[in-house]
Design a protein around this nucleic acid. Structure first.
Lengths: 168, 168
DNA sequence: TATTGTTATACTCTATAACTATA
DNA sequence: TATAGTTATAGAGTATAACAATA
């Protein structure tokens, strides 16, 4: 029989090992996707001279069921209001979104995709999806499902734990 | 018996579903960790007024077995040389790294951690590890192992696939 | 008085171009 | 002539502060 404190120590050790494998990989994955040519190419697939924040707004709107308020877009992108306002301005000038005053609240604006905005969001998404489908092509079905499940839980748990941090 | 083309179509459909779950999660996880207060707090744990690129250099050096050249640090961080040069300059002024000419190649510089640089890297890493250990506290052992395995493979496959993209 | 969004400004991170020293 | 690093400059992305309009 093993005493409790040495069991705890062994568990802490395993956690340490897991994290020293996990965290560098997460960092590298995040850097690879944000700095590699992948997103750049996906933007080229839209045929429009958009920057990353702008295309992110379009994709966010396209993923939503309908128009979103500026504040909702900002929350989903995890950025601050003025950032969204500025990019929505240029997207509107280019005819990719429309700004409509919310009938239920005259302070708020509803941002909705135009047809060409929808087309751009879909061309971008298609390009990224195709690229990742190639990456996952040889993966066994069960591994894919496990990855989605585990990464989903990790994301939720990280988000929840960050909120306890931000409360202070 | 099902014909081949409808099997392929079903597989493509499942891939589509997987990706529409996976990619937004990856994006959110990446944004949460980079923009949340987590890394900021870990930097505070060093007691030094460092910015993110500087602490990343220290951690990169600390993870390596010995001193690294400027170019090696840049490659591991997936950034460009001048970026590293600049931050190494300020780290050196603060006594956190030393710049030594490589005896085997007079053009190159070997960057090595000082004792206080090592201490800063370790305080930072300890803070991040502790935070993530809390996130994973309730996870079953098998799920942790699967996550590391699958995320490791995903990272490797993404990196490899990006290289085929960058060859052009 | 609180909230939604906007305008103006500033900061952080990273890249590109031109150069120096050594190979 | 090619490579390692540096210096100087520019750009992308995001934040903060002050404000206007509506609730």
């Amino acid at each position: 029989m093993v005493d409790q404190s040495s069991e705890d120590a062994a568990k802490a050790e395993r956690t340490e090992e897991i994290l020293s494998s996990l965290l560098p990989r997460l960092t590298r994955l995040s850097a690879s996707t944000s700095r590699g040519r992948l997103l750049e190419r996906a933007i080229e697939a839209t045929g429009l001279p958009l920057d990353k924040p702008a295309i992110t707004i379009l994709v966010t709107l396209n993923r939503a069921s309908g128009p979103l308020r500026v504040g909702e877009i900002a929350a989903q992108m995890q950025v601050v209001g003025p950032h969204v306002t500025r990019h929505v301005g240029t997207l509107e000038k280019r005819g990719l979104v429309r700004r409509v005053t919310d009938p239920d609240d005259q302070r708020a604006r509803l941002i909705e995709l135009t047809d060409s905005g929808t087309a751009a969001a879909e061309a971008y998404t298609r390009s990224v999806f195709t690229w990742f489908a190639e990456v996952l092509a040889d993966w066994p079905e069960q591994d894919r499902l496990d990855l989605v499940r585990l990464l989903g839980r990790l994301t939720d748990d990280v988000t929840a734990h960050l909120e306890t941090l931000d409360e202070n």
